[in-house]
Design a protein around this nucleic acid. Sequence first.
DNA 1: TAGATTGTTAATCGATTAACAATC
DNA 2: TAGATTGTTAATCGATTAACAATC
Lengths: 213, 213
Amino acid sequence: MDLKKKVSIAVIRRLPRYYRYLADLLKMDITRISSKELSNRMGITASQIRQDLNCFGGFGQQGYGYNVELLYKEIGNILGVNDKFCTIIIGAGNMGQALANYSNFESRGFSLKAIFDIDPELVGKKIKGIEILHMDALEEFIKSNKVDIAMLCVPYEYTPELADKVARLGVKGLWNFSPMDLKLPYDVVIENVHLSDSLMVLGYKLSEKLKNK
Amino acid sequence: MDLKKKVSIAVIRRLPRYYRYLADLLKMDITRISSKELSNRMGITASQIRQDLNCFGGFGQQGYGYNVELLYKEIGNILGVNDKFCTIIIGAGNMGQALANYSNFESRGFSLKAIFDIDPELVGKKIKGIEILHMDALEEFIKSNKVDIAMLCVPYEYTPELADKVARLGVKGLWNFSPMDLKLPYDVVIENVHLSDSLMVLGYKLSEKLKNK
DNA sequence: TAGATTGTTAATCGATTAACAATC
DNA sequence: TAGATTGTTAATCGATTAACAATC
């Protein structure tokens, strides 16, 4: 179907970073930038920037550089900022509530539709105007609403079963916060946030640092 | 000082994942495993597993494979699970509280010593037996206690200033939850958790998926 | 011993960097 | 036009995979 080579995940993972730097430049009223200057700010090579951007098309102009606003919008498009993904949060503990309160998800195309929990203390409460529903209502909700992404913030032991359930109901994207690799027999995309993995890497870096002193 | 080549960060980032799989195997009372069998479970090549492990030494035995418990302990050692890092959480909002409640950090060598916030409503409250202190007490606390890692969970606009402050006070590891790349003139190791970056990558994967249907 | 599987070297692959012609 | 900087090809580097002798 698509003839051009698939863009590597390494490039994709750099896009949100470009997007952040371009937003900063916009805020500073900088209207144009060269790959050289951007490379200085970001601490990567200008070559890499040009290579990355050219995976998606020629956004620059010889002798001039890149128009910041245009490039910002283009990268936004690539990342689907204008796509409006409908999301739900499952598990309204601290992590779930933290995600519900993240204000910049909305501006990046992620629209929170509902929050679910089993705790009767939490059910009925509102976060950012979104009512917390009981878990029992989850299946019905997914069946009668478009849900693109489920953010899984339930305790470890509930996660696999829950992931399987929402995938079976047709949710195509999972954002997993449990320290496990979900394996699903369905055609689903998964992005993991393994906090303890990240912390352990920090621990490793720190001991290396102390060792070499 | 160290003659052997520095282990690449790609390898390091896989270690916590090995550690999780080995913990699972232990739980299942599996005492030995070959790189082949582990590769099947993890979905990576046996070659990569052997290469990764041999960055740190020969933990296996020809004809036998790896002793699960031994390997688990060795990887734990490499990651510093026995190192006891003292940590503090700055910002006791939902994210800070979520981190405070993460029970498996402690078992991985991270000992939470204090939590800080400016909100008088929160100050004095206890999470997991740790009292939330006022931000004003931060400087004094760091000066009179060993603090290895600060987990920064304050709003975006406070983060750079705060990072600079704790680094100046001698904290050597920062775990940053704000969507920005901290740049510090001090000798500090930083690990970022950029949630919105992760979510945007999920969004990208999802649109790719839908496009190719 | 025969079979299994490691540790390690060599080959391959992919990603990053360098170079430069094209062109604004 | 001259200078700057892109888009793109080629070179380099590093990481992953394959192969296999060593050995349990």
